[in-house]
Computed example of a mutant assay.
Amino acid sequence: MSSYQEVFVVFWEEVIKSVQENRFAKLTMAKTIGKPDLKNIFVRPISFQNDAKLMVKFSYRSGETEDTETEHTLEEAFTILKSHLKNPFLSVLLFTTTKDLTFKINKKGAGSILENYPTFQNVTLVDKSEG
């Protein structure tokens, strides 16, 4: 496992904790290498009950590729996001009601986590009756 992957595991433990404590507001994968069609991956909470459910949305640059939304467990979401690290994403932003965390991969392939004040005061669950 390379260094950024180990740091991502630490970062993901914060994601799990925020979900368990109902503080998870949103997660965004951003900062791509080059300009791939896949622009962002967004993760939002559907439910915090027993087996938490998350909505994973793939957002594309081109109008030809339709955005997709799928429902996943925390474990499944971790596998999906991990497969997109450095391929093409270099940063992952976790928004919780108590703090924001940014996971970054630098040019040398090392990972780091930065903590900031929270952007969100409240958690909004995905309303599955929408759209």
Rank of each mutant, 00 (worst) to 15 (best):
M1S: 15
S2K: 11
S2T: 14
Y4H: 14
Q5E: 15
Q5D: 15
E6Q: 08
V9C: 00
V9F: 00
V9H: 00
V9G: 05
V10K: 09
V10Y: 00
V10M: 02
F11D: 08
F11L: 14
F11H: 07
W12T: 06
W12K: 04
E13D: 14
E13I: 01
V15E: 02
I16Q: 11
I16C: 11
I16V: 14
I16A: 14
S18F: 05
S18Q: 04
S18E: 02
E21N: 13
E21F: 07
N22I: 13
N22H: 14
R23D: 06
A25G: 09
A25P: 02
K26F: 14
K26N: 07
T28D: 06
M29K: 03
A30D: 15
K31Y: 07
K31F: 06
I33A: 08
G34Y: 09
K35E: 13
P36W: 06
P36N: 08
P36D: 04
D37N: 12
L38G: 06
L38H: 04
L38E: 06
K39G: 04
N40S: 03
I41S: 05
F42R: 03
F42V: 12
V43E: 05
R44V: 07
R44K: 15
P45F: 06
P45L: 05
I46F: 07
I46G: 02
I46H: 03
I46Q: 04
S47Q: 07
F48I: 05
Q49L: 11
A52D: 03
A52W: 04
L54M: 03
M55G: 06
M55V: 00
K57M: 15
S62W: 04
G63R: 11
E64Q: 15
E64F: 13
E64S: 15
T65R: 09
E66V: 13
E66G: 12
T68Y: 06
E69K: 10
E69F: 01
T70G: 11
E71N: 09
E71F: 10
E71H: 08
H72R: 11
H72P: 00
T73P: 00
L74A: 02
